[in-house]
Design a protein around this nucleic acid. Sequence first.
DNA 1: CGCCATGTGGCAACCGATTGCCTTATCGAT
DNA 2: ATCGATAAGGCAATCGGTTGCCACATGGCG
Lengths: 352, 352
Amino acid sequence: MTDDAGSTRLDADLPPEIAARVRRRGAATIYDIAELAGVNPSTVSRALSKPGRISAPTEAKIRAAAERLNFRFNPMARALPTGRSHTLALVVADITNPVVFGIVRGAEMAASAAGYTLVIAESQESGETEAEATERLMPSVDGVVLATTRLSDERIVDIAERKPVVLINRAVEGVPGVLPDVNSGVDALLEHLAGLGHRSLVYLSGPATSWISDRRFARMMEVSERLGLAVVEVGPNAPTIEGGRAALRRVLAAKPSAVVAFNDLIAIGVMQAAAAQGIVVPDELSVAGFDDIFGSELITPPLTTVRAQLVTAGERAVQGLLATLSGEEGPSYDPLETTLVVRGSTGAVAGG
Amino acid sequence: MTDDAGSTRLDADLPPEIAARVRRRGAATIYDIAELAGVNPSTVSRALSKPGRISAPTEAKIRAAAERLNFRFNPMARALPTGRSHTLALVVADITNPVVFGIVRGAEMAASAAGYTLVIAESQESGETEAEATERLMPSVDGVVLATTRLSDERIVDIAERKPVVLINRAVEGVPGVLPDVNSGVDALLEHLAGLGHRSLVYLSGPATSWISDRRFARMMEVSERLGLAVVEVGPNAPTIEGGRAALRRVLAAKPSAVVAFNDLIAIGVMQAAAAQGIVVPDELSVAGFDDIFGSELITPPLTTVRAQLVTAGERAVQGLLATLSGEEGPSYDPLETTLVVRGSTGAVAGG
DNA sequence: CGCCATGTGGCAACCGATTGCCTTATCGAT
DNA sequence: ATCGATAAGGCAATCGGTTGCCACATGGCG
């Protein structure tokens, strides 16, 4: 346990000048190791980061010295000549949106497993803020994950020309992205609703810039035709509970028997507003969402929703970035399966 | 709009060697600016980061050149000689825990407002992982915010000796921390419960390493004595819904009329388990939590809880770090007020 | 026995900023 | 007119690694 990660004590029997230098600077450098091991700094550098380049005995000697000094690479010094910071940016619209937790966690895990650091930028749902934050981070990261981004296609392409980029929940020509399998989830949801006797639906779309919202509606149109359902789009809406609350009036005006919301937050908002007006869900109105966020099964009635594999999405995005950085070209992904989770907010049509 | 943040185009009429160099490296350096402006690189450095050190006309010339080249400082190059990375670490137990969202957002806002980058490390509720992640980040950050940490006091002191540290929801001798005003919230909650006729309470404590959990219980003991209430502690519990569910049996064994949980997640777990057993909240059992997370007002009945100012806590922690970094010594904070939010999960005792 | 391929390790330039020290110009005061 | 103070800008060392190139030693092979 002498190499305990938290230990800052230095061996007592170290050459005093080295000990003094290390103490003064707060950390050991490859020069200290070189001196301690009696080799050239370049040899230390190679021994520690080019396995095999240096003879086994020398490398062992160097590793021992490094351990004795509790050495860590200085990431900044390392990044300067190589241009590699070992840092990845994850840009999300809103950290407090439960939808992004999974993505953040997956990305974090994949990054730290690979020895990379993840920095998170939040755009607070504003395209302008997002562009700024991204621009600010660009010089210090090796790659960027753009999740649920509000940026325009051109902006995205522009960024992708400078650094490797992977998108989550958005497709842009020429830029790799990890996408959910929209179709399977939408299909299952609409079949579920049709099976309950619904014939007239409202789709509450998300922000105008949301690619995934468009895709969902497009698929709904296709499937509805096949199933003989009527669908109207109401939106755009802010992807928040407030957005859902505000949308109820327009929903009711369309007199549907069921409403499908762009995400669970909007769905929850609709349910709250409905409850406030004495409308009983699901008896008078069925409600469904997407994502299966924390809270969806807490609400009464619990929300029927289409679950996305958010953690996996975050992981894959980072892994794709890492692959690109290590030379492999243009990762491509299979869409991530989505699954329908039936709970209490959808039910048979009253007048069936 | 030629200096649009997203623009990468270079002026056509630039000295060709400069243009070529910039294009090859992907970014302009102060050397490019120096050449373009006809001054020494050191002058560029001063003009751009030591306002007033350089004469106004020269500075203007340099700024113009920088703009033309769309110059950004290379953060790594800058960090090397100064030892300042302009990066702060925020260590949290669990990103997906709603409690930390507020902290993350507040910290992020404060950091980016000051031009600092925030990197988030997640410990997944494990002290070992947390120590490792922190250790890994240490060399590349200027300071650390430890939120809801699982680290031992010694570890924390050890870290604080190397880099500025601010704690959230934890007090360690000699290390600054932003703390909630435990007393006001606990007092209000117990007075509320006493007013409803409750005489016998269970406190469901959090993880064994949680300083704040101990503080809350300590205060409950004090106040209970004054109000003539009986209180027993049941725990430790995992600070999750699952932890709350698992705790119900032991709660019921104590036959209290009300249970106060370490946080809302545990409270929600207790309510779910109670509902599953047909126990009606609040008629047969009142339940209250702490934090007022997303989801607390969604659940049925909505949860009575003590709200903490999480965003403010994150902001203050970062601001404290920043103050320390700019020379001011040992920031000290007033505790952040907490407020009781009465909802439906607490009610009058059945048997009066 | 000589030659060349291979394995090891050293030398020194370089990444892009910062900063202490120095030179030169300018200005006001005596 | 002279001197010292101050302002402005240049020079070069430095931060801590990385890496191309080179030197030397060793060993296999003809």
